[in-house]
Design a binder for these strands. Structure first.
Length: 609
RNA sequence: GCCCUGGUAGUGUAGCGGCCUAUCAUGAAGCCCUGUCGAGGCUUCGACUCGGGUUCAAAUCCCGACCAGGGCGCCA
């Protein structure tokens, strides 16, 4: 279908507008997607842009396969019908280069899509280097590690990319369902002063010199909203967990789908909403994203409803009947969950509830089931794996305070939270669901990382800041002094002295800060390898002399910027870099401080490969 | 963090004390070929994670470091 095909009753106006918009954006011909080329384009000109997936040169004719977001287009290049320079350009372009090709669309019985293009011109928008770090269509498999190290290339594979099309559809469906059911989308802070359930699993950050954390859950904030009149809220956003979990279903950063609803009469109200939402989402994906699902090579089974409700006690019995050794109060564990998943699958259920866990195993905000050791809590399991958990919350102030004490927590420390309960809090409940886990189970993917573009786990921290360390050394930067060497006859040695006595102290300061930054990093930056190359960037900020006009920013006086850099490098030796000789790029700048800045040096060291 | 398994060309692998100047595939470079679509044919290129040890001899055995995959704990 042509983008400019006119389908409504006012063709002239539509055409005019399309043309106008086009010319505003760009003058070049419209770039077409592979999926939009069809019989209507036969013997007409078209332009496509994409990655060169393959070049098959057969001598007198060549075929170039160009891939875009939706598929591929075959370009047929008969040697005798195109200019020689075009032929040689098209047969020599490196794989995965981005090209823009204009030509005539031809009907073709031999081509898979039933059509192909005969080119009249090709523009290489971006040539790909060779060899490729991994092949997109090579006839060898690629290991997970290589795939994630070269994620941009990995994502060029349609089956890898399709997961994210599905994830996007799923998120839209979740949104749709909840908004229809009166929920308000909210955003709670991701920088918090303390965690929801203690401090062990939090990532600490420096917040203008104060200790802060990345939020592991919106729990406390969404509950506080229940006291406001925003009585049905949901949030889809990142959550951060510093747990050292090393599994196929854990990452340090994931998308949490949280919901909370007030004025409930029992936990069942919460179950109903979440069940409706999950079912709506899975059904919707099965219906609307079938193309993407097929590309992944899987299928989405729509779960049987209603989701069975199993109490923790019954689940325990069922797992024990399967031969596992568990007693009352024990966590089901991964094995137990899997065993239960198998039992339920045999009964025809992929998704089911496990409710009323022992109160002891649940956090302070969960409501106890009075007169029993249990609580109004639930997990939602999908094929033997937990994807969501939640419960009815303790909304009664006195009981909440009791629960804090029971958990060994000081209620006073949670004043900002408990206050919301002290002045009128309706009964409420909610859930937290791992979006990636839902997508993973829905698509039957082996590893949660498949559902995350750039996964962060215990060992994987990649991206722009990979293998770099940045720190600030306060104080007036000192240069490496000019050295003077002379021979001392008495001791038969060459002695070297420096002209700047402050240098030593400054270098020590640099070394100390480098060490601190390295320790704070968790994983040491230092590597004893002599082959490693480094880039060092330094910005030196000097105090402004009082006499200086305000507009002057550049410090054109001494010390010299290269001598400043020398002093820094010496300070880094053996702390971040084994030897100065390994520094292959050095950038140093100096200027006077601006408003609110402190004199000192901002230093960034990067490992390069 | 613990347990298991592993680290060999750009990619995926074989070899697991001497037959290794290291296998095969893929890839890259070059040549031949007008209908390929896992194209085909010929030629060429390219690797044993690092450090120590055992041995006449180490890719191979042992120890350590680093890295990865899986399992467990914990959780979404």
């Amino acid at each position: 279908m042509s983008r400019w095909r006119v389908t409504n009753s006012a063709p002239a106006i539509r055409l005019y507008m399309a043309g106008a918009i086009r010319s505003m954006v760009q003058m070049s011909p419209a770039i077409r997607y592979s999926k939009d080329l069809g019989p209507g384009d036969f013997d007409k000109e078209a332009t496509i842009e994409g990655w060169v997936q393959e070049v098959r040169a057969l001598g007198g004719i060549a075929f170039v396969i160009v891939r875009d977001r939706y598929g591929t287009v075959q370009i047929a290049v008969p040697k005798k019908k195109v200019p020689p320079e075009l032929f040689s350009a098209m047969t020599s372009v490196s794989r995965e280069s981005v090209v823009r090709i204009s030509g005539t669309v031809k009907k073709s019985d031999q081509a898979k899509a039933g059509l192909e293009m005969v080119p009249s011109s090709m523009e290489v928008m971006s040539a790909a280097q060779s060899p490729l770090p991994m092949g997109v269509v090579d006839k060898v498999s690629v290991e997970t590690e290589t795939r994630f190290d070269q994620r941009f290339m990995d994502l060029r594979k349609p089956e890898t990319r399709a997961v994210f099309e599905v994830k996007s559809v799923a998120l839209r469906l979740i949104d749709e369902y909840l908004v229809r059911n009166g929920f308000v989308e909210v955003f709670t802070p991701k920088i918090v002063a303390s965690g929801a359930e203690g401090g062990a699993t939090l990532f600490g950050i420096d917040y203008f010199g104060r200790k802060a954390y990345l939020a592991q859950s919106p729990q406390l904030y969404k509950q506080m909203l229940m006291s406001t009149g925003l009585d049905r809220v949901f949030e889809i956003g990142p959550a951060f967990r510093a747990e050292p979990s090393d599994t196929i279903r854990h990452v340090s950063e994931f998308i949490s789908f949280d919901g909370e609803m007030a004025h409930i009469s029992s936990m069942r109200d919460v179950l109903d909403v979440l069940e409706g939402c999950v079912q709506y989402t899975v059904e919707g994906v099965a219906r609307e994203a079938s193309d993407h699902v097929a590309r992944i090579g899987t299928e989405v089974r729509v779960p049987r409803t209603p989701y069975p409700v199993i109490t923790y006690s019954d689940a325990l019995d069922m797992v024990v009947a399967e031969g596992m050794d568990l007693k009352m109060g024990d966590d089901l564990g991964t094995e137990g969950e899997k065993a239960l998943g198998k039992v339920m699958a045999d009964k025809g259920y992929d998704v089911y509830w496990i409710v009323e866990y022992p109160e002891e195993a649940k956090p302070f905000y969960i409501m106890e089931k009075d007169g029993t050791p249990f609580s109004y809590s639930f997990d939602l399991d999908y094929c033997g794996q937990e994807i969501a958990s939640g419960g009815q919350r303790e909304h009664r102030y006195d009981r909440l305070v009791e629960r804090f004490r029971k958990k060994g927590l000081e209620p006073e420390a949670f004043r900002f939270y408990t206050n919301a309960f002290a002045y009128g809090m309706p009964p409420h409940g909610g859930w937290g669901l791992g979006v990636e886990r839902l997508v993973q189970k829905m698509l039957g993917l082996p590893n949660i990382r498949e559902t995350i573009l750039f996964p962060r786990d215990r060992n994987r921290l990649t991206g722009l800041e990979q293998d770099s360390i940045t720190f600030f050394v306060a104080g007036e930067p000192q240069p490496k002094g000019s050295t003077r060497s002379f021979y001392v006859k008495k001791v038969d040695r060459v002695v070297t002295t420096t002209t700047n006595k402050n240098t030593k102290h400054w270098q020590l300061r640099v070394a100390t800060e480098a060490q601190h930054a390295n320790e704070a990093r968790g994983v040491s930056f230092f590597s004893p390898e002599k082959e490693c190359a480094y880039e060092v960037e330094a910005l030196f900020l000097f105090p402004r002399p009082k006499s200086l006009p305000r507009r002057v920013r550049m410090n054109t006086r001494r010390p010299d910027v290269d001598k400043l850099a020398r002093a820094v490098l010496d300070g880094l030796a053996d702390i971040l870099i084994p030897d100065d000789s390994q520094v292959v790029m050095l950038s140093a700048r100096k200027r006077y401080i601006g408003e609110g800045e402190t004199p000192g040096a901002r230093i960034c060291v990067r490992r390069v490969r």
